[in-house]
Amino acid sequence: MSLDNILTNWSRYRKGAEEGGFHEYEHQWGMVVDLNKCIGCNACSVACYAENNLPVVGEKRCGKNQAMNWLRIERYWDEPDLEPYKATPTANVDAWIEGNPPAKKTELKPSMPSSYLPGLLELEGKSFTERVGFDGIKSEFQDFGASFLPMMCQQCHAATCEPVCPVAATYHTPDGLNAQVYNRCIGSRYCSNNCPYRLRYFNFWSYYEDAWPEPLHMQLNPDLSVRDKGVMEKCTFCIQRIRVAKDKAKMEDRKVIDGEFSTACVQTCPTGALVFGDMQDPDSHVSKLWSYHQVERGKTKQSKENKELRGYRILEGLNTDPSVLYLERVREV
C-alpha cells in the first residue's frame, strides 16, 4: 500500500460496509468454523505452529500469557457445573513471576476455560498431566460438557486494530485481509490492546533463540520470516499459501479455483470443521455456507428468516465485520 493510498483512502478503510467502506477487493478470503464438528483436538493449532514458524515459548512464558498461538482452542464448560474459580489466577501469576510458587494450597474446582487461565499449568505441585487425568489419575475437570471454540484472527473488514496503528504496519489488503507488516511494526502494541478478540501476539523476547535449537531450525518455513522481539504478529490466513496459489493462477492466466489450496489449519482438521475460501466467488464452499446460514457481511445484526440456522459471527455487534463464520454447536437437552 502506498502512502498516497493510505492518505486518500484512510477513512474508507476504517468504515464498515454500511457506511460505504473500502470494498473493491480482488478476493475476500473467509472461513467457516463448524463447532458441531470440532472435537477440540488442537491439530489446527499444531499445524499453525508448524506452518507459521511459531515459537514454542515454554511453560513459564506461557503462564505469563505470552504463548504465540495464532490459532488457539478456547475451552468452555457447561453452565450447570460452572463454579467460580476460587483461586485468583492473577495472584498466582504474580507469585510465579517472582519465582515463588503459591504457598497456600488453593482449592481447585472444575471450571473456566483453561486456555485463558495463566498459572494453571502447574499448581499444588501437580503437573499438567496429573491434573488432566491421564493414567487413571482422577481429573479435576468434568468428564463431559466441554465445548471448544477455535479462535484465529477474524480478519475484520472494519478492523479495530488498523486505525490505531501509528505507522500503518497493519492495514487492509486488496484481498480483504488484515495484514501485519513486520518490517514496519514498531511494537507500540496499540493494535493488540484494541483487538476485542485478543488475537494479536507480541514478541516480548527473541523467542527463536530457544524455540528451535539445532537441528530444529531446519523445520522453519522459508516462505515466512522468523519474527524477532518487538513486533506484533497474528494469523495471516496463511498468506504464503495464498500468494503461491495466486501466483500460480496468474501464470496460468486463470482465477484461483476454490479448494485449490487451503490454510494449514483447514488442511489439518481431521473432522473437516474448518472451511476456507474466496467469498467473492459465489460458487465457493464458504460463500455457499454463508448464504445458507443467512449471515451477511457488513451487518451488526443478522436478520435471519429461519431462527434455527446456526451461523453467527463473534462480537459482530461491535461492527468489526469479521470474515469468520461460526456455526453454533447443537446440544442435546
Binding site: 500500500m1 489488503t173 513486520y182 520470516s225
Partner: peptide, 15 residues
C-alpha cells in the same frame, strides 16, 4: 513498481 504499475500491496512482497 510505481513506474510500471506493478502491485503496490505490502503483502505482495513482504512476508
Amino acid at each position: 513498481h510505481e513506474a510500471n504499475k506493478g502491485p503496490f500491496d505490502c503483502w505482495k512482497c513482504h512476508k
